[in-house]
Computed example of a mutant assay.
Amino acid sequence: MVKETKKKGKSTNDINSTDKILNVIECIFKEKEISFTEIKEELNIPKSTLHRILLSLEKRGYISRNDVSDKYSLGVKFIYYGETIKSNLTLSKISESILKDLANEIGETVNIGILYNDSVLNILSVKGEESVLTSKLIPISPLNCSSIGKIFLAIKNDIELITYFSNNNYEKRTENSICTLDKFKVEQNSILNSQISFDDEEYEYGLFCIATPLKNHNGIINAAVSITGPKVRMKMKNIDLIQKKLIDKASVINDILIKIKFDFNY
């Protein structure tokens, strides 16, 4: 019993020590540059303890001290760690938890699609409520009759659009499918201005989709996020509200992509 008590006490001390170290790192990160006294006052850590923590962090490259100002900032090791983490990030990993929240909120399927050989390839799909219409969808769809696809078509120039439609790359899946350049040009400006695209029973009768683009720090659109569901059910849930929630979540993802200077790695 005595040994158990000591073991528990040691574990608690270890946790407290780790908390102190992490608090110091977070304090330095928040302030960019900060002095010993300022850290001590901010965190209320004993002088001797703080001295040991700073000395250890500096020795291992986690922080550096400016000899002139005598202030601490984060060290080069965090640059290395940051680049390693960033290189391991994929669009799916960045977006998944955000899109799960969206799918749970609205109860409809949420997808991320990328441009792949003049088609849309879904790289992430988060299921909502069950539906026969969404359950039979395949991960590849044409540009001309999918909401994500029309995002990609909208950013093509006139020559690229002429080539796309003249080469019969489009598919006429329903009577609503857009299969001519003239008909698409009517929608193109609206998509570019609103950053929203609709598939109103153009891919499948009874199916309705809304999409908005994802952009990195260079403003490059290489992916888009969409919400897909039965048209009747989505109308009952309020399509305007669903559209707003989609835009809000896409903005969160875009902010992350911009902040980390993401170069679309799928």
Rank of each mutant, 00 (worst) to 15 (best):
L74P: 02
D67S: 13
L54K: 09
K77P: 00
K86F: 03
E42L: 07
I63G: 11
S69P: 01
I53E: 08
K77M: 06
R60K: 15
K59Y: 15
E83G: 05
E38F: 03
L50C: 13
I63T: 15
I53K: 08
H51L: 11
S95R: 03
L50S: 12
V68K: 09
F36E: 01
S69T: 14
V68T: 05
Y80Q: 11
T84C: 03
L74D: 02
K93M: 07
E41V: 02
L50A: 11
L54V: 09
Y62I: 07
R65M: 13
L74V: 05
E58S: 15
E83P: 00
K86P: 01
Y62K: 08
L55F: 13
K93G: 04
V68Y: 07
N44P: 00
Y72C: 08
R52L: 13
N66H: 05
I79T: 06
S56E: 15
K59L: 15
I85N: 02
E83S: 08
E38V: 05
L43R: 14
K47M: 06
L43A: 13
F36R: 04
I63K: 12
N66M: 06
T84D: 05
K47W: 03
I85D: 03
L91F: 00
I98Q: 10
L91T: 01
K93F: 04
G75W: 11
I39V: 09
G61S: 10
L57W: 04
I94Y: 01
D67C: 02
I98D: 06
T37V: 07
S92F: 00
G61Q: 10
S48G: 01
D70E: 14
F36V: 02
Y81C: 04
K86I: 10
Y62D: 13
I63F: 09
I45S: 09
D67R: 14
I45Y: 08
I39F: 02
S56Y: 14
L50E: 13
G75I: 08
E38Y: 10
I85P: 03
E83M: 08
S92L: 00
S92P: 00
H51N: 14
T84R: 15
H51I: 05
S48A: 12
